[in-house]
Computed example of a mutant assay.
Amino acid sequence: MHKFLKSAAAIALGIAALSVAAQGYPNKPIRVVIPFPAGGPVDQTARALGAKMGAALGQTLVIDNKGGAGGLIGADAVAKAPADGYTVLFSSAGALAIVPHLTASMPYDPQKDLIPVTQALKVPAVLVVSAASPYKTFAELKAAATGQGSKINYASAGSGTTPHLQAELLKREAQLNINHIPYRGAAPAITDILGGQVDMMMVDIPVALPFIQSGKLRALAVTNSKRIPIMKDVPTMAELGVPKAEAYNWYGMLAPARTPADIVGKLYTTTGAALHSPELLKQFEQQGVEVVASKPEEFGAFIAAESARWGALAKAVGAKLD
């Protein structure tokens, strides 16, 4: 945690004045590495954000999808890139707060080799079952998943992913007896939820929302601290008596560790302005996610706290990197 806080504090001190390095920045396209395949929610968010930022900066933000190993491959590419502001990472929680706890041979140290720019979004999860499921409420699902006779299983996007750990958190806090069925990605997991092969799943709201709105999935609870406007009839975990199951995925921007503080500051202010544009605010509201746009030092402290939280749970449940 201290490494992140010290790095972030250095940024805060340097943002006020532009150095020689940043006076002409940017004078060429900026590469935004997404550590996941194209088409997913992180990728879609980065493309929408990049278009707004590019217009403001007068340069193109080029999306570079480098998926694999839970985000590790893409994050490593940025950690080893020149620290000149022309290569940045846009990632969800996995590569920064979870994957480091799932492997003994990390090629990079997320708290040493990357520096935070901003947490862009907070992404709550939703607990879903098939529309054909007999469980109409969380109370009914919990009743079926309590005790030694439970046969309830849950899908995830893979061992050690955010949906896996969110479900394990719910399992612990609600004292459920549920069995993990890992998949290689959210799409095949949702397919089997729809087909009734698996009973339940915790999944990021933007991923599940189209299926909920079309009536193919039933939402039983959201992990947000308050109800989501686009899903106002779905209760929160706290309302259902499980406040400690509140949990989020999140998306944020980082840069190689030695990127000049004023360049990081320019990326931060430009990202924040884009996030608060009317078009993107409307888009994010319709997806059930919340704009954060935190300062670099705030994002650094947040990542450190998230790493400690999810790392402890990952080790407790024996999560492995697929």
Rank of each mutant, 00 (worst) to 15 (best):
A247E: 12
A312H: 13
M231H: 03
Y268S: 10
Y248N: 07
K244C: 10
A293S: 10
A221Q: 10
G272K: 14
T259R: 05
D262P: 09
D262N: 00
M231G: 05
A257C: 01
I230Q: 02
P229G: 13
I230K: 03
L313I: 10
Q286E: 15
G272V: 12
V234Y: 01
E290D: 14
N224A: 15
P235Q: 09
A314F: 01
K282L: 07
P243W: 12
F302Y: 04
V291D: 05
F299Y: 15
E306N: 04
T223E: 11
L267I: 14
L254E: 08
Y268T: 03
T270H: 04
K244G: 13
S225L: 15
E239G: 13
L220S: 00
E297A: 13
A308I: 12
S277P: 04
A221E: 09
E279Y: 10
M253P: 04
V264M: 08
K226P: 10
Y268G: 05
V289R: 04
V292K: 05
A312S: 13
K232M: 06
Y251R: 10
A255G: 09
R227S: 02
G252F: 07
L240K: 11
P256S: 09
V242P: 02
L275R: 06
Y251V: 06
A293D: 02
T271S: 14
K232N: 15
K282A: 00
E246V: 15
D262V: 07
A273W: 05
G241F: 07
S277G: 10
L313M: 08
W310N: 08
L220W: 08
G288K: 03
I303P: 12
A257W: 01
V222R: 11
Q287A: 12
F302C: 02
K295L: 04
P278E: 00
P256M: 13
A221Y: 13
Q286L: 15
E298N: 08
D262W: 01
F302T: 07
W250M: 14
Q283A: 14
Y251M: 10
P260W: 05
S294G: 14
T236P: 11
N224H: 15
S277M: 02
K232Q: 15
K232E: 14
E298F: 13
L275P: 01
A305E: 02
E285F: 06
A273C: 02
A312T: 12
A312N: 02
G311Q: 00
F299N: 11
T236W: 11
F284M: 13
P235H: 00
G272Y: 11
K226H: 15
G241K: 14
T270G: 07
G265W: 02
G252H: 11
E246P: 12
E290T: 14
W310K: 00
P243T: 01
L281P: 11
H276P: 14
V289C: 05
I263H: 06
N249F: 00
H276G: 05
S225Y: 15
F284P: 03
A247Y: 08
L281C: 00
A308Q: 04
A314D: 09
R227M: 09
A273S: 07
V289P: 12
A221P: 11
V289S: 06
N249T: 00
P229S: 04
E298Y: 10
S307T: 01
T259L: 05
P229Y: 04
T223A: 13
A273M: 07
T271N: 14
L254G: 05
P278S: 09
Y248Q: 00
E279W: 05
V242C: 12
L240W: 04
K244Y: 13
G265K: 02
G288F: 03
M237T: 07
